[in-house]
Design a protein around this nucleic acid. Structure first.
Lengths: 300, 300
DNA sequence: GTCATCGATACGCCTTGAGTATCAATTAAA
DNA sequence: TTTAATTGATACTCAAGGCGTATCGATGAC
């Protein structure tokens, strides 16, 4: 004979009420099956749990001891069921986020905060990767979702735009072109450029380079860094000019001036994932990403 | 639908093997009922626990999570069963021992040590009581067993002799009677006595007084103390004489001399308990007490 | 002494779990 | 490409076991 949960539930009800009739009512059964299950439990344990007289029921020492543990076992199982359901819904678990520093600087903190607030029981594992590694990490399952620019992405990966904004020119404050309301890209042909490295930010690098080529020149690159804040700092020091996402103008750095450009270019950031990834947390994160994207689009 | 332990056991077996056929064999059932029970479990949880293809079975995130907890729940229940059985056998639990200091000085430490060694999982609660309170404590269930002299005990209490030894006289080393191999009790008539208080050691007090009266005198009591070691100390200081259990002679106190007496009196100590006490630890303690009593009788 | 309460027992019904046979899907081998 | 083997799911049947009704026996209360 083996113990069943029914017997534990019946036992706990009886131990709580110490009355077969009332315990049975509480369990939505009649008294005889309760008597039988308790007897079967005692038989399985090989120990008396109750002392019954036809006038009162009380626990034995073994019964008191078993009661403590039975309550804990039932509570543990209940907790396991709840947390498993939460895991299945993606409300808890582990989400591995891969990001490229150049792409994630703007979106990552806000999106992670939103997700973390919505699902505090989910564990987020962030890891910085270079763009070409991101695809492989997502396809192999080493990462669940990436935050990146929409670079040439291989089959088997989905992309969702979360944020988009125009490129603006950033110039030293004393620069002649800073006087104009709009910067004509062609006039930057002779300026030294401070850009993103092609290796770690191919999309942004290609966008800037493409914009220049369209105006008939190849940008003369003096410095490269994948930290956008550093680019602005270097421009403010008078070391060159650059094209950066407009939102960088929030930096309000003395010595750097932001201006829209004559031929608008939009740079976007989004999330990338493998649709066959079964991690339930991914679905919840994508919900957040969609809502975040809509909020950004609406608020822009 | 409610979860049953059968489903947990089946689930753990399947999660361990990741193969319906082998898990079923291991569970001593066939494969179809295993499939059905797992499906029922998933249905109850409202979450998929396995991803099945006809070629391989693997756990989902929720399945891995549930597996951890299911293993713990089953282990907890197993532990609860074992410890409950141990409790029923009296191998663990709480045993409340009441003792009178005058009676327990000799038997208590050895008996408690023997019991504690035999049942290390049992908790022993010692409390000193005066003799008249011991009976009441045992009858009311406030104590499980007492260690005492066999005083007039009320109905409803059982007594088992554990130790018995003769009373010997203890005299100051320079006392004239100390020269004799055996002390005639009648010659102590004029000596000041150091005795046990009648209130806290009625049996011992009555035994000494009765012995004196049989020899035609009432002992002249100079000092009373219920600590037998103190009695010997006071005798060694020359403050009087006393009749004490022979084993006190082990004290080897300079200035005190022990001698057998002309009319031997036996003082015994034993354990007292209420036979309707259902504490399983009591039965094990009484086993120890019996064995201890036989060992003492045999070694004496 | 009678009646009420309460847990145990007897008996019948029916739910449900297990076994057999088989299907459907996938993969390996010919 | 076809065939065979493996594996989990499903259909059907049987039987064990859980539950409900009726009743018993013991214990207290009035």
């Amino acid at each position: 004979m083996t113990i069943e949960l029914r017997q534990l539930r019946y036992f706990v009800a009886l131990a709580d009420t110490l009355h077969f009739g009332r315990a049975a009512t509480q369990l939505h059964i009649t008294q005889p099956p309760l008597s039988r299950q308790i007897a079967a439990l005692e038989d399985t344990l090989g120990a008396a749990l109750f002392v019954r007289s036809s006038r009162q029921v009380e626990l034995t020492a073994a019964g008191r001891h078993f009661h403590e543990h039975a309550v804990r076992v039932l509570a543990a199982l209940d907790g396991a069921v709840r947390s498993t359901q939460a895991t299945a819904r993606g409300e808890r678990g582990v989400l591995r986020v891969g990001f490229t520093m150049s792409a994630a600087w703007n979106v990552l903190p806000a999106l992670i905060r939103r997700y973390g607030d919505a699902f505090p029981a989910a564990e987020i594992q962030l890891s910085e990767v270079v763009p070409r590694e991101l695809d492989e990490a997502l396809l192999s399952g080493r990462a669940d979702v990436g935050i990146a620019f929409p670079w040439q992405r291989p089959d088997g990966l989905e992309y969702l735009r979360v944020h988009a904004e125009p490129l603006w020119a950033v110039l030293p404050a004393g620069h002649p072109l800073a006087a104009a309301a709009v910067v004509a890209v062609g006039e930057l042909a002779d300026e030294p450029f401070i850009t993103f490295p092609a290796a770690t930010a191919p999309a942004l690098h290609a966008l800037v380079a493409g914009c220049c080529r369209e105006h008939g020149f190849e940008p003369r690159i003096r410095l490269e860094t994948h930290l956008q804040q550093t680019i602005v700092n270097l421009v403010a020091e008078g070391l060159g000019v650059s094209l950066v996402p407009r939102s960088m103008s929030r930096m309000q750095l003395a010595g750097a001036v932001f201006r829209p450009i004559s031929s608008p270019r939009v740079i976007e950031q989004g999330v990338i994932w493998a649709p066959n990834n079964a991690n339930p947390c991914l679905a919840r994160f994508l919900d957040c990403a969609r809502a975040f994207g809509e909020a950004m689009a609406g608020g822009d």
